[in-house]
């Protein structure tokens, strides 16, 4: 019992040490400084273009100062800042929609893609239909979605779900068909049943493609969510951006955009992290770890 505990602590220690080592290593490399410089140049240009030079196209734009000032103000002029509960309510509304749509897209898209890849007969039936529906932009579904679901909430979710689902299913199918025939043969040689082959060869073999699909999926989910919220939302970041436009509160638009960028970045970073955790073999193949 004690040995187990000390083993766990040892592992925890070494993990901490590893993180510290990696951090020290990355601080010694030029990458983080270059990234900071990139941000500084972008923000500097924004400030100069709007407030100092007042370039033709930028004159009406919200300035860096106005946006940041409002964003961190306890009493924002345009009503939305880090200190107002509405800000988080909007984030949560969007996040909830994306997570629901993403979860449903994964739960349906992965099995469908697996079936496409695994069963040629099934693919012949369904794939042509799938390929016609897939290129229809989510926005084109808006009117039908509203008719179909009556309420706005469900139709926004549906519009968010659809492209995420297509991306996941398609990439999963590619993943299954990318598996080298000799792995399948090897499994059969070694006595694996069809189900065991599926579990031990097809699923892990398709995993890198599935995770690529999930990355794309969450990206397009955010994309179409905002479109949906602009047209049919009553809450959420897309709604914030759109009402910012109609109410001429321009700094709010930018606050909404930046927030979208941050939340979107974090959500795909989490998927990347989970993928790397689940596929240590793949990370090692690519020389990322070990």
């Amino acid at each position: 019992m004690e040995m187990v505990a000390s083993g766990a602590i040892g592992r925890e220690d070494s993990r901490l040490a590893m993180i510290r080592r990696r951090l020290a290593l990355s601080l010694r490399s030029p990458a983080p400084y270059l990234a900071l410089l990139g941000f500084a140049l972008f923000l500097g240009f924004w400030h100069l273009a709007v407030e100092v030079w007042q370039l033709p196209r930028f004159r009406a734009m919200p300035s860096l100062g106005a946006v940041v000032g409002d964003w961190i103000s306890r009493d924002p002029i345009y009503g939305l800042s880090l200190f107002t509960p509405e800000y988080y309510a909007h984030i949560w509304a969007s996040l909830r929609r994306v997570l629901l749509a993403f979860a449903l897209a994964t739960a349906l898209g992965v099995p469908l893609g697996m079936a496409f890849g695994w069963s040629p007969a099934f693919r012949r039936y369904v794939f042509p239909l799938f390929e016609i529906l897939r290129p229809i932009p989510a926005l084109a579904w808006v009117p039908l979605a509203i008719v179909m679901f009556h309420g706005t909430e469900s139709s926004v979710r549906f519009i968010t779900f659809l492209p995420a689902f297509f991306a996941t299913a398609l990439n999963t199918m590619l993943g299954v068909s990318s598996i080298d025939e000799s792995y399948l043969r090897a499994a059969r040689c070694l006595g694996a049943s069809r189900w065991q082959t599926f579990r031990h060869v097809v699923v892990p073999g398709a995993m890198p493609f599935i995770f690529t699909g999930l990355q794309i999926s969450i990206g397009v989910a955010w994309f179409s969510l905002v479109a949906g919220e602009m047209l049919a939302g009553e809450f959420g970041l897309g709604y914030v951006i759109y009402t910012g436009y109609t109410l001429v509160t321009y700094p709010t638009i930018v606050i909404g955009m930046v927030t979208l960028g941050l939340v979107g970045y974090v959500s795909s970073a989490i998927i990347r992290l989970v993928g790397r955790r689940l596929m240590q073999w793949h990370a090692r193949n690519l020389g990322i770890e070990g």
């Binding site: 080298d180 000799s182 792995y183 043969r185 090897a186 073999g205 596929m279 793949h282």
Partner: peptide, 11 residues
């Protein structure tokens, strides 16, 4: 069978 290009499961 032992395959030409090897078929150890990479995962």
């Amino acid at each position: 069978v032992v395959f030409q290009n090897g078929a150890l499961f990479p995962w």
